[in-house]
């Protein structure tokens, strides 16, 4: 089958989702079933078909550049698990935590 435990680990890392060994095995078979099922789309010739990315093909409305009141910092932070000096706290950032660091 196309989709392997290695692949699960790769996408789990991209999606920042810890996956146990047991879960990984189960996911391999679940996702393989769906991806195999999806291969039926290959039967269609789509070279000259334009994709439909949006719900409806209307043009975008634009917003006037007018200021709306913002939240107070208290309100912005009210649901945060950890706050310090009116800011959201995150634990230390290690090398490789950086934007989009993708591999194991």
């Amino acid at each position: 089958m196309g989709f392997t435990v290695r692949d699960v680990r790769h996408v789990a890392r991209l999606a920042r989702l810890a996956v146990s060994e047991k879960e990984a095995e189960r996911l391999v078979s679940d996702l393989n079933a769906v991806l195999t099922y999806a291969e039926q789309l290959n039967a269609l010739t789509t070279d000259s078909v334009l994709p439909t990315f949006h719900g409806l093909g209307r043009a975008m409305p634009l917003r006037e550049d007018a200021v709306h009141p913002s939240f107070s910092p208290e309100r912005a932070l009210s649901q945060a698990p950890q706050v310090k000096d009116a800011m959201f706290v995150v634990p230390r950032i290690l090398e490789g935590d950086g934007e989009g660091g993708a591999e194991e």
């Binding site: 999606a15 920042r16 810890a18 945060a80 698990p81 959201f88 995150v90 634990p91 290690l94 490789g96």
Partner: peptide
């Protein structure tokens, strides 16, 4: 980070991965 569940973590990647 901004709302919802947060699992204890010693670094950022762990925060993301274990929380999710």
């Amino acid at each position: 980070i901004r709302f919802g569940l947060r699992q204890p973590a010693s670094d950022l990647t762990q925060l993301y991965e274990s929380t999710r």
